[in-house]
Amino acid sequence: MPLYSQIIQYVLSGITIGSVYAIIALGFNIIYNSTSIINFAQGEFVMLGGLTMIFFTVMLKFPLVIGFPLTVLVLTLIGIIMERFTISPIKKPTVVTLIIVTIAVSILFKGVAMLVWGKDTHFLPPFSGEKGIAFMGASLNPQYIWVVGITVVVVVLLSIFFKYTIIGKAMTACAVNRTAASLMGINVKRMVLLSFALSAAIGGIAGIIIAPITLMAYDNGAMLGLKGFGAAVLGGLGNFYGAIFAGLLLGVMESLGAGLIHSGYKDAIALLVLLLVLFIKPSGIFGVTEVSGFKKF
């Protein structure tokens, strides 16, 4: 394959994996905006999403159109359970306590997944076959189109939700100023619960669409979560479009780095760029420095 089609190949797979990072980053942002918590179990939602989908469609042989919504439903419930039983009981939450709690939850999720699905790597068949589509000299995996397409749908639906629905607007208000929101009669606790449910649901979607490409095992959550967190920070925590841009950027860089430089250093390259960006712009590409400087940890 000539170099330029190789590059196209890398960019295409970069955009695909980047879309998934973007969705995961959005999951981080939704919870961060309503609670200032970085949910370190976000990656586990993705893992659970992939494995639950495999359970419904591979083990129970449900069709995709049923397995998909069922999986999202299960993940929503998991998000609600997590908030009710681990976040909400904490009386005096500090950022560090919450970080540890979400890490503990992620360990628990991993344990549950290991008990249910074992330590094997599971396979989810691509949604529409594996025959590559020729595209500018490169071969396009049809699953890539599913991933990018579903990502676009998720992004559009989320922006409609936050801009035009009452609940979405209430959540945005909480993100801007929690005290003011509660004075305006918004039930902040309910919003926190909702943010966990929503975040788990879209984490689950990320898991469903990525599973046919990367396969899924009980211990895949941490790395996916890490990349998504990277994207969220790179885009400026809490910034919706920043997360999407940064997710795609990370995905493409990682893919190009792996293909053109050295596959062992692919994560290092992505992280290095992330560090350099933070060192130049301490609050991410689209973050606001002066405000974040005053936010207490």
Binding site: Y32, I38, V95, I99, L226, F229, G230, V233, L237, D267, A268, L271, L272, L274, L275, L278, F279, P282, S283, G284, S292, G293, K295, K296, F297
Partner: peptide
């Protein structure tokens, strides 16, 4: 260490991973 909060967490995490 010019970074704050979660940004510092991410930077140190990145350094550790590298």
């Amino acid at each position: 260490l010019k970074l704050k909060g979660h940004y510092l967490a991410m930077a140190t995490l990145g350094f550790g991973e590298i």
